[in-house]
Nucleic acid binder design. Structure first.
Lengths: 215, 215
DNA sequence: TGCCGACATTGATCCTGGTCAACCGCGCGG
DNA sequence: CCGCGCGGTTGACCAGGATCAATGTCGGCA
């Protein structure tokens, strides 16, 4: 429904990098599906049962409160696998942040994937629990610092970090408002800890200072 | 305040009440270990590899920041299993909240437990993600309401809810201070939503009101 | 049964981050 | 090429919850 073909040529080069993907055993590989920026991959309440691997782009996983407040529980970058649930129903929404390609793995119901899924689930659990510490007990500066370090880490620990998501997304991930995120970033910039190469690209100048802040 | 001494005592067999729980296959069952209130079951950094099932009592799982701030990521009540990690190291602390008995399952390294562990990991992941929404986007009243409902739910949905943990524990679970937890509880009491039977026992009088608050 | 200490409640004040609002700047379409 | 709109930044003010402090109460044990 939402997936549609799109021109790969138009994509920024950093979305095109191939990644070393551990293919799934016992799962039928579907062709890559394309999701334009902002489109839904699956919705809360929908039937689950298919796994997704990000080929390029980025995905946000989130829940909503009745009044529209949103909590993003995870971002998924190239190479990462998402879509598994505790039961047969999706408890979250998944949306493409930018133009995103995902490879779909359809699993034969007879196949036992637990051996391959367990490490992923445990990794996700650990990440979620670490995120709980950030949301429950850290202040705005600490949250943003932790976020920048997490993103740098997940992109290979380079000085230059891509932020595929908007300030709004960052805020909804960190439990902050967009204004607070913005203010903290400028404060970090003024302190010489980071440099904003563009809105969506940050260079980390003082990694140790950031580390000291982020915990 | 938080006892660090690990005082593991094995109970005489006539104390070992069995409870209706699905035993593990392929795991050596150890006798029940007894942990007095406040004692450590395992520590962050320790080697993992053993599973625990709460026989009686309650357990808190938490992390600490350098300055002592604490985030409890989960409580485990009777019947629940905890102790599994993404790698061979514990990333969290586990402590007995009250006098607690845990059954230890030692797993032969050859045995593949993933089939049995995956549902538990996924359940934990879902709970953690729901907790993220609470910590990231809900205010104090909503957090406490959600907590009371969660506890009621996990105790069979009865009107009367046992809170095995202190206000401090509740605060560190909800990302609030002990004072705020206390104030919210008195406010709920004044509104006739709950009744405090004792410090550790709450009766839910208006479940629907609580539900509306907890989201 | 009464005492003590830990835990909990309540009150006063402070401060971080939210809210509301104005403005900026870039990219896109007319 | 200009103007519009969206996303981001910045500022002023506000409020929810933290902090600091005093008091209250429960429960365990002598």
């Amino acid at each position: 429904m939402y997936a549609q073909a799109s021109a790969k040529i138009e994509l920024p080069s950093h979305f095109q990098q191939p990644h070393p993907s551990p293919a799934f055993e016992g799962a039928a590989v579907q062709p890559v599906s394309f999701f334009p920026a902002g489109t839904e991959i699956y919705a809360q309440g929908e039937k689950a049962g298919v796994l997704y691997q990000v080929e390029f782009g980025a995905v946000r996983i989130y829940r909503l409160l009745a009044d529209g407040r949103r909590q993003i529980s995870a971002f998924h970058l190239a190479g990462e696998i998402f879509g598994f649930e505790a039961d047969s129903t999706h408890h979250f929404f998944a949306e493409a942040i930018n133009s995103t390609g995902v490879r779909v793995y359809r699993i034969a119901s007879a196949t036992d994937m637990s051996r391959q899924l367990l490490p992923l689930a445990l990794k996700g659990l650990t990440r979620a629990q670490e995120h709980l510490l950030v949301l429950g007990r850290q202040n705005a500066i600490e949250r943003v610092a932790a976020f920048l370090l997490e993103m740098a880490d997940r992109q290979g620990g380079l000085r230059q970090v891509d932020l595929p998501m908007s300030r709004n997304d960052i805020g909804d991930y960190l439990g902050l408002t967009i204004e607070t995120v913005s203010r903290v970033l400028t404060r970090l910039k003024e302190k010489g800890v980071i440099r904003l190469l563009s809105l969506r690209s940050v260079e980390i100048l003082k990694r140790d200072t950031l580390l000291a802040m982020g915990e």
